[in-house]
Amino acid sequence: MSTAAISTPSAPAVVGVIGGGRMGAGIAQSFAAAGSSVTVVESGERAAAAALDRVATGMERAAERGRLSEPAADVLGRVSVVGSVDELPRTCGLVVEAVPEDASLKARLLAAAERVVSPATVLASNTSSLSVTDLAAALSRPGRFLGMHFFNPVPASELIEIVVAPETGEETLRLALDWTHALGKKDVVVKDSPGFASSRLGVTLGLEAIRMVEEGVAEPEAIDDAMSLGYRHPMGPLRLTDLVGLDVRLAIAEHLHATLGERFAPPRLLRDKVARGELGRKTGQGFYAWP
């Protein structure tokens, strides 16, 4: 009696990533490590060089921790940076948009990518809170689009939140799930709704922690220790806010406030810190000082 071979999901042969910031670079690194040829879109020579440097630094760290199955230089050789969406390879199996949380910017770039790539290409947004349904409305082929919400730091995180819009096709979802598993990550599938599952719950905890600091209930470290030691969270909500970026948290909170009501109103302390440029780890100061 013969036994059918069980196929292991593989990453797309060619992947495009729009945006080379921390998240985009992490997404690019993860797919390159899984064997994909990755093209990152980042405008401007300085920004392009910085994007490639982020990927290279991530590769080196992964290699030091034994997380790469081949030399970092070989993996990095599969990553290139171009200056325009128009330069994405038509053969991309997947294009992931990973630019800031600006709905009009995301919609414009996704529509531009759709005009360049094959009709069979899956388009995905890495948005953490914006409506995937609204973004799909900018596309000619909304059935080939969905949300793939990665988590920071992407190479080390275990999760991708798959966000399904009403018009997302079954084959598109199947491919996204296969690619998630090819990256060695687990999936959660949610229907499109404000904040999805992860941001809605995570921001709720983070905003309440900020209000506690604002009200003088406890110092940030004490609040974080209460959650990490008492509830076994891997990181406290304020330290996580610093890692994500206070500006990112504020943008998500404002969106949820507008769509879900007063319980997501951003605390004044959060607004003040963002106004002062205290954005967390990326600026060296947030709720903690970062060397």
Rank of each mutant, 00 (worst) to 15 (best):
A33H: 08
A34V: 06
S36N: 02
V40M: 15
V40P: 02
V41Y: 13
E42K: 14
S43G: 02
R46I: 14
A49F: 13
A51P: 05
L52W: 01
G58K: 04
G58V: 03
G58W: 05
M59N: 12
M59G: 04
E60L: 12
A63T: 03
E64L: 08
L68S: 06
S69A: 15
P71H: 05
A72N: 07
D74G: 00
V79R: 03
S80F: 09
V81S: 02
V81K: 02
V85I: 14
L88N: 06
P89Y: 14
P89E: 13
T91E: 15
C92F: 15
C92N: 10
G93Q: 09
D102P: 00
D102Q: 10
D102T: 01
A103I: 15
A107Q: 09
A111E: 10
A112Y: 03
A113Y: 10
V116K: 12
S118I: 10
A120C: 06
V122C: 12
L123W: 09
L123E: 04
S125Q: 07
T127F: 14
T127D: 00
D134W: 15
L135K: 06
L135P: 02
R141G: 08
P142L: 02
P142K: 01
G143Y: 13
R144V: 07
F145V: 06
H149M: 08
F150K: 05
N152F: 13
V154P: 01
A156Y: 07
A156G: 00
A156L: 15
E158Y: 07
V163P: 00
V163Q: 02
P166L: 11
E167Y: 03
E167H: 13
T168C: 10
T168K: 05
G169D: 14
E170C: 05
